[in-house]
Amino acid sequence: MEKSVNNAITIDSVSMEYQTAGGTKRVLHDVSYQVSEGHFVSIVGPSGVGKTTLLRLLTGLATPTNGSIAVRGQELHGPPQGMAVVLQDYTRSLMPWLTVAKNIALPLKRSGLSKSEVAERVMSSLEEVGLSGSGRSYPWQLSGGMQQRVSIARAIASRPSILVMDEPFASVDAQTRFDLEDLVLKVRADFDITTLMVTHDIDEAVYLSDEIVVLRGSPAEVREVVSINIPFPRSQVASRNDPQFAHLRTRVYALVRGLE
């Protein structure tokens, strides 16, 4: 426990295999990485490389074939306490029979909070994502971008120390995407959350992250870990015009494409 006290997540020699009709398929091979407390880490790689598989292992929704994963020093057995997950398919991860407010309250069922505390949390979470007036709507009455804001509000309602997101902005338009990226940066700053994100968008990864993990190969291995030293707070205009930005996106692109 002592050695990993500054690591939110420790991935130790993790391999993952699936049994398929054609035999054993190895998806991840000997992946080791440590997510530092408070960092924003993006996992990138060519499509189909196993990014989502790695994310499922990190959330405890799946168990690695070999190796181990620890969250704050505790080995994973199922989804850990203090971690919130935003899955890719937001339209299907919100409960359509519950109002927005009740969706956000759902993860608090086991928190031991009183009714008024829960209501308070729901209110403040909605406020944080800019949806104060939408608590009584149903998710399907909202636009895609607003639904994704709801799932972010739901994720922060339990005041997690770690936030894990799987391609959270994959299916919204470009303008909404920029807004949501800035929302995630704000949430992370406001609550001091360690954040882990899978994305296929290299610009987005550079814009948001402290560190980018590049997965490559079949089975996938950690090809490179790239530090992003663009200063915080970041802004869509200034940060993307930083000379470092162009340099880093080119480098990450080359790594993902196997050109380096």
Binding site: G60, P79, S93, L106, R110
Partner: peptide, 11 residues
């Protein structure tokens, strides 16, 4: 997807 979401809530 809903089931996994519920699992991450530790329900």
């Amino acid at each position: 997807v809903l089931l996994e979401t519920a699992q991450t809530f530790r329900l």
